[in-house]
Design a protein around this nucleic acid. Structure first.
Length: 309
DNA sequence: ATGCCCTTAAGATAAGGA
């Protein structure tokens, strides 16, 4: 893969030959002479973030992109239709962006400054869902695009709602259909550069929730055997959780209620699953707990992976 | 006792989240 010059925040306006656009805030920093770091060479940085409404958090997204300089950002729960998605925010910051949103529920997006090709809304044979008596629809829970040679999917796995709720059947079928896609892809192309990232709504291990007894006692979702089996089936196909080894014991979500964040009573439910060939390129991964502490934060926090060329 | 919070559409409450 070609190597790409990556400049630190603020360089773009003052260094000749920089092809990377950057935000007005960075230009201001550069004008003030705040930036003196030299250009360097790196690979690619992929982030996933359940934003819990993009319109309510446009400023947080802008600040976060400004600070963390990711190449690809997958968003879930944008909670808006395409007509009201803030495309200009991303384009202003130098990202191409594709969004799939139908209404105030769900909604997924991929922003990229390393190319955004072959956008697909929904995966092949993605199960539909509808309330009883209403037609079933393809919900806005998956969008795929090829970014810098990586096939990225931003995924928002159905919640399940309750262990015996029809939504749980939907969740399990949804994950099984996804697994079938992975199976087909890896069988056809073992060297596939595939990244399935997003909010999986499953806590695969007991340690991925603050109190497993609390979850079991209250017959809560996310920790049940069927959900864990559906998640494990992705790993059995060869997909690799590339974040866990770098962030043992960390959470990605804290409920707004009951002071969960203050007490660090969270859950690990946001994951980046990479195909074997892509997983081999991972150099670093981290969970940005600082973002969750900010005023007006999403209840989920960004999960970032850095890969080598 | 997930009652406790947050976002949406709508224009008061209800749905959804996990």
């Amino acid at each position: 893969m070609r190597r790409r010059a990556v400049l630190c925040s603020g360089c773009c306006a003052v260094l000749a030959g920089c092809e990377r656009p950057c935000s007005p805030r960075n230009r201001l920093r550069a004008m003030k002479g705040a930036c003196s770091a030299p250009a360097k060479l790196e690979g690619m940085k992929i982030a996933t973030w359940n934003i819990n409404s993009i319109r309510a958090r446009e400023n947080r997204v802008e600040d976060w992109l400004d600070e963390h300089d990711v190449d690809v950002l997958a968003l879930q729960e944008t909670k808006t239709k395409d007509e009201t998605f803030p495309f200009d925010l991303f384009e202003f910051m130098g990202y191409e962006v594709a969004h799939f949103g139908l209404n105030q529920w769900n909604g997924v997006a991929i922003a990229s400054r390393v190319g955004l090709e072959d956008v697909q809304r929904g995966f092949d044979n993605q199960p539909h869902f509808g309330k009883p008596g209403e037609p079933e629809v393809l919900e806005a829970r998956a969008i795929g695009a090829t970014c810098g040679g990586v096939r990225v999917w931003s995924l928002y796995v159905p919640n399940g709602r309750g262990l015996t709720d029809p939504h749980m059947d939907y969740k399990l079928h949804w994950m099984e259909a996804l697994r079938q896609n992975v199976h087909n892809e890896l069988a056809a192309n073992p060297q596939s550069q595939l990244a399935l990232v997003g909010d999986w709504n499953v806590a695969p291990e007991d340690a991925d929730v603050w109190d497993i007894d609390y979850f079991l006692r209250n017959e809560m979702t996310h920790v049940s055997e069927p959900e864990r089996c559906a998640f494990a089936a992705l790993l059995e196909e060869g997909m690799v959780d590339v974040v866990r080894p770098h962030t043992p014991g960390e959470y990605t979500y804290w409920d707004y209620q009951a002071g969960r964040f203050t007490k660090d009573e969270g859950m690990r439910i946001d994951f980046q699953l990479f195909s074997p060939a892509l997983a081999a390129r991972v150099e670093r991964a981290w969970i940005d707990k600082v973002e969750r502490a900010g005023e007006g934060a999403s209840d989920h926090t960004p999960v970032v992976v850095e890969i080598a060329d």
